[in-house]
Amino acid sequence: MCVGLPAKVVQMKNGTAIVDATGARREISTELLEDVEPGDYVMVHAGIAIAKITADDQTETQELMQGLMS
């Protein structure tokens, strides 16, 4: 229901951030998350950051599968 795009925070200013997704940049709101800093990755939906994330889905999948197999 919700297209989300992982993006890297490159700049922060009063609750708004410039994020970069492989070279595409946009200003978004980070007001609804705590402690967002440049360098963090966030999930962006409809112009707001909805979660701080880790960018690497490979590691996530690996860890989950290890948990599942043990």
Partner: peptide
């Protein structure tokens, strides 16, 4: 939870409060 890099136990409390 199979989307642990994005989804946490508590989700987005500030958003829910808003």
């Amino acid at each position: 939870n199979a989307y642990t890099r994005v989804v946490t136990e508590e989700g987005m409390p500030i958003g829910r409060k808003l």
